[in-house]
Write a protein that binds this DNA or RNA. Structure first.
Lengths: 115, 115
DNA sequence: TCTATACTGAACCATATGGTTCAGTATAGG
DNA sequence: CCTATACTGAACCATATGGTTCAGTATAGA
């Protein structure tokens, strides 16, 4: 059974609802990057990008480490299993609803044949 | 290739980031419901629930039909394929990053053995 | 026809979000 | 030591979000 009232889902789906943050995740999939790297790449101030990184970090989608002046961002630690599980369970529900609908349709067809 | 800058993803992940809306989806998976039904179930005003339904509707996760006084809400039409695809592609990226890391670790181990 | 029900829309509120600027602090490197 | 770089934090701004209340409109049913 999947957990539904889950603050982690709030955070991760919230983080994923912004296109810049989704793009940052994909970028980090290609290479680790500093805040400055990301800010340049996405035409945004350092401070602005920092906020996005904080959101991603709080959702567990990015981890960072500061060495000297530079804070390096990388993917992880979470792989979004819970989110995928939620979507899959939704898909099952959705299928169940429409299978049930099919059944009703079938029954109606039967009644048509044998009234 | 999955589409990344996609307004639909903004809408659906945004819709899913609220626990009430996730719960409403699950509820609709069990049975269609009027706005009043949902408002009662989630201890909220009609107007408040209406807003949630509008968000879900705009994300394509719920469809509604008004018959007489009653607006009935049900699942659909979207099954969240695009969202699942996005998360899966993220997972691949994530695995690739950590596989690459594994490789580096393996190479370091090799050098240890044959210095 | 009358009344209760079901919704709708506008207005309001507090807080969150996605950005900015500006003024720091800390460190790398000549 | 000096300066440029990299970040941090506070303050600000406009708009969005998640709720409310209140005043309608429209329809179901006695």
């Amino acid at each position: 059974m999947v957990q539904y009232r889950h603050a982690r889902l709030d955070a991760s789906f919230g983080a994923l609802s912004d296109p810049t943050r989704r793009a940052v995740l994909l970028q980090l999939g290609r290479a680790d990057a500093s805040i400055t790297d990301l800010a340049d790449k996405f035409h945004m101030t350092l401070t602005g990008m920092k906020k996005h990184v904080i959101v991603l970090e709080q959702a567990g989608l990015v981890s960072t480490q500061k060495i000297g002046r530079v804070r390096t961002c990388k993917l992880g630690p979470r792989q979004l299993e819970a989110e995928i599980a939620w979507l899959e369970s939704y898909r099952e529900l959705w299928n169940a609803r429409f299978d049930a609908l099919d059944e009703v349709v079938q029954q109606l067809k039967q009644k048509e044949k044998n009234p």
